[in-house]
Simulated scan of single mutants.
Amino acid sequence: MGRILYYCEQGRITGGIKVSYRHVDTLRRNGFDAAIVHKHVERPDWFAAPDVPILSADEVVLSPRDVVVIGEDSRFTLRGVANTPARKVLLCQNHYYVAFGLHGARDFSGFGIEAALSTGDVVTAFLRRRFPGLPVATAHLAIDPALYRPRPKQLRIAAIPRKRPHEMEYIRDLLRAEHPEHAGVRWAILKDAAEGLVARVMGESAVFLSLARLEGIGLTGLEAMASGCAVTGFLGDGGREYASAENGWWADGEDLDSAVRQLAACLTAVRGGTAETRIAAGRATAARYTLEREERELVAFWRNFLT
């Protein structure tokens, strides 16, 4: 068995990088020779990156025994390794980015992709629809309960505006104007924050406003659920995998006015002491996304692929 090499971009704070590192760490614990490949051999410092090997993309020499793992939007990597002797696997964490990786190609066959590994049910359904001949497996994402957990709560709305900065300001303004009873509630805006800070703020905040947009799954919503937040806002499409009327106050599609109404209803429930049932349902939902399930599904995929 050769190496399993996860090619991973640097310089951005994204959940996809965390997942790649966790996959490599999990595979190594299960006896696989796995490593991260970066342009520069530098370990990210914005999350607790496991101590796994990091190789320089400029120095890696690929052999037929190696397997290259490539993100769905990494069009330069897809083309750069297409003619190498290594086998290739697509790691798709967001189906909305697939077109960027293809960059006009009909499918991934011209890049030597033999199989795809997805991180969620919505992504898997898309891949099977778009590429009916491509073998697809799912290794569902996981929430670390030691990191994302409830802490002593304060009446505060936590939000990560990266995908919807304009929408967040619209929602904040209209909430103040149309629901003055909630105008004094404080906000915790998390911009390019390290994972430890995100987890602490979520754990201490009573409410989390999901500003998800075009997501494969919308992991922050699940992390907020695990942190004991009352969760409201957008599904970002991928959140359809886990969201329901029982575990959150969800906006209708892309409707901003609906998001304002749902946020107001969520705050009213939290302040009135009637939100606990949905908060508990949210924690139960997040509890399904275990590290053990992710490991079991990931290892099963690689054992099957390599036999």
Rank of each mutant, 00 (worst) to 15 (best):
K39D: 14
A86G: 03
E59D: 15
C92G: 04
A57R: 12
P64C: 09
A34N: 14
L62R: 08
S56W: 05
Q93W: 06
C92K: 01
P44N: 04
V41T: 14
W46T: 04
V69Q: 02
P64M: 07
C92T: 01
L91D: 10
T77D: 15
V98G: 01
V60Y: 09
H40N: 12
V68R: 00
V61N: 10
L62T: 05
S63V: 14
P53H: 08
L91M: 14
F32A: 07
E72P: 04
N94Q: 08
E59W: 02
A34C: 13
K88M: 08
N94P: 06
F47M: 03
L78I: 03
V52G: 03
V37H: 05
D58Q: 14
P53W: 08
R87S: 11
V68Y: 00
W46I: 00
I36C: 05
I70F: 01
V60F: 13
N83D: 15
T84D: 13
H38F: 08
D51V: 07
H40T: 14
A82F: 12
I70Y: 00
L62C: 14
C92D: 11
V98R: 00
S56T: 05
P44Y: 02
S63Q: 15
V67C: 06
V81Y: 01
I70R: 00
R87T: 06
I54L: 12
H95F: 15
A57Q: 14
E42T: 11
R65W: 11
S63H: 14
R79G: 13
V68K: 01
V67N: 07
S56K: 12
V60L: 10
V37N: 02
E59N: 04
F76C: 11
T84R: 06
W46H: 04
A35N: 10
D66Q: 07
A49P: 02
T77L: 12
I54E: 00
T84A: 13
P44H: 00
P85E: 04
H40Y: 07
I36E: 07
L90V: 02
E72A: 09
D45Y: 00
D51C: 06
L55D: 00
E59H: 13
K88L: 12
V41H: 02
L78A: 05
L55V: 05
V37T: 07
P50A: 06
A82C: 08
H95V: 04
L90Y: 09
D51H: 12
I36M: 15
V89W: 11
F47Q: 02
L62G: 07
S63T: 15
N94H: 14
T77M: 10
D33S: 12
L62P: 11
V52E: 11
P64H: 10
V52W: 15
